[in-house]
Design a protein around this nucleic acid. Sequence first.
RNA 1: GCGGAUGUAGCUCAAUGGUGGAGCGCCGCACUGUGGAUGCGGUGGUUGCGGGUUCGAGCCCCGUCGUCCGCCCCA
Length: 429
Amino acid sequence: MKNIIPSVKGTRDFYPREMSIRTWLYGKARQVSESYGYQEYEGPLLETIELYAAKSGEELVKEQSFVFPDRSDNLITLRPELTPSLMRMVAQRQGQLHFPLRWWSYGPFWRYERPQKGRSREFFQWNIDLIGEASPEADAEMVAVMASFYKATGLPPEEVRILVNNRRLMDGELNTLGLTPEQRPQAFRLIDRRDKLSPEKWRDYALDLDLSPGQFDQLVALLENRELWKQSDEMVNFFRAIDALGVSDYVQYDPQIVRGLDYYTGTVYEGRALTPNIKRALAGGGRYDNLLADVGGAPLPGTGYAMGDVVITLLLEETGNLPQELDISPAPVLVTIFDENLLLASYRLAADLRRTGLNIACYPVPAKLGKQFKYADRIGARAALVLGPDENAQDQVTIKNLINRDQALVPQNEAPQLISKILAGEESS
RNA sequence: GCGGAUGUAGCUCAAUGGUGGAGCGCCGCACUGUGGAUGCGGUGGUUGCGGGUUCGAGCCCCGUCGUCCGCCCCA
């Protein structure tokens, strides 16, 4: 290990096993996104810093982004999130796009923060957005997509839940409590942190915001009120749609969910694991009706969320929902090399078989058959072929089913059929 | 960026301040036309790195880097 150049801090190596999980996860995102009619898109991985300075949080840009000068001394940012790129892409072609837009994306992002469990500096994120529709039913669709993803990955409502609230509703309630327009955004931060602080510290924090003890008590009562949503037509319609979409089991109202980002304007939602070991949000999003106008487009409402790959993978691992045997060879058939004289004949046999559409791995050089069979076993092959002098003289080949140890000697032109049978799990020899 | 732990073979971990080990893995042999099992043998390390204390440091001290757990932030 001494002379190996270390990897960049916070990055991950994807060995075949991890890579197959990554591909599988991407596939699930695709499957679920497309099942609701969403189209895949992608933005650049590199952006100017200005794109984020316009909209994203101060901390995200200044503290948590990878920023460096290129050879022309322009400041380049490795994208920390996708929404600004999406907003630009929409604004640039606003006139020629068909709304509502249903778009999804899956790609790498970078944030310069302290790596720890569930957080790395380079991660993959599934983004999905519905743009151009302001109805609560649009938010319900996004939440239904999220629920469908959990369902598709084998996570039942007992293990994962989507918590929902509405900022307009909360803003109105805070107004009723007598909080000034200046106090309300801070109150959102206060609410957001309730679970992270001790009750005493949280109370101190609240009183620091000049909440009176009376207001504080009312706020606490507000956050305990699981029926608060009934006071909002938007929420009522939202939950009706959730019901119709068949995902009520996964969704629950929680007055404490407000989300950290400032740009959310309406319904907000967050995927949470109910497992005690995973405390971070699995996914988070909400309605942002002012964002497009903020980057220079015509006003257009939007709603969407992002899901990072790290936490969801931890949860799927913990709940045993990751697919098994992901690290086996894509070629379930190994052609052995009997000896030097039969090397090229074996290569020809493998090439012939590939032409029939089979995935065939060839042992590269002659070796003891025992060693080659062992290798076949290790790479997860299900059939091994032997082309020895006897077989070669008759244009035959020995085909061994590595699952049940059956072995057959067949003419080479019948090999594809037999191999296909073995791979299909039919035991015939 | 702040606080706390930790770092020994490919992996999981042992070793009172006194010559660094085990299990698993890997390779080989038993088995010169056949895998998983078993047995035997072998490969395996500048104890993360750099200083310091000491007759002597894997062990104690300082620094540094990585990892992990919190905080901040958030996917």
